[in-house]
Simulated scan of single mutants.
Amino acid sequence: MAPLNFNRPADYLDAAREMADSGRHTLARLLAEEAADRTTDPAEAARIRAEFPGSSLRQED
């Protein structure tokens, strides 16, 4: 199995969907937030966050 590379927002989004499908909703939300942050289009970022509802799980310093 080839190692996963996370170079694009779509990579994070694919991983988020995979985690959601396997019941790992917290990890899915974190990956979706990262995908949204790496997306340059604000409307697309909002759509990604809406696909994985809930409040942010990040702990900012």
Rank of each mutant, 00 (worst) to 15 (best):
R17A: 02
P3H: 08
T39G: 10
A2Q: 11
A10C: 01
H25E: 05
D11V: 06
A46E: 15
A36K: 11
D41K: 09
P53W: 05
T39D: 01
R29K: 15
M1C: 08
H25V: 06
A50L: 12
H25S: 05
E60F: 12
L31T: 00
A32V: 07
A15R: 07
A43H: 00
E51C: 11
F52N: 14
R17I: 01
R58M: 10
N7M: 14
A16W: 00
L57A: 11
P9S: 06
D14A: 11
Y12D: 02
L31F: 09
R17N: 07
R47N: 09
I48Q: 13
D21E: 03
R8F: 02
N7V: 06
P3T: 03
L30C: 12
A28Q: 02
R47I: 03
A15D: 00
R17W: 05
A16V: 08
D41A: 07
D21W: 01
R38H: 14
Y12I: 03
D37R: 13
D37K: 09
L57V: 11
I48W: 09
L13K: 09
S22V: 00
T26L: 10
P3L: 06
L57W: 08
R29H: 14
S22Y: 00
D14K: 10
Q59M: 06
R47F: 01
S22D: 05
P3A: 01
D21Q: 12
L30D: 08
L27G: 13
S55R: 13
A20T: 03
A45D: 06
A36E: 14
A20G: 05
E44G: 03
R58L: 15
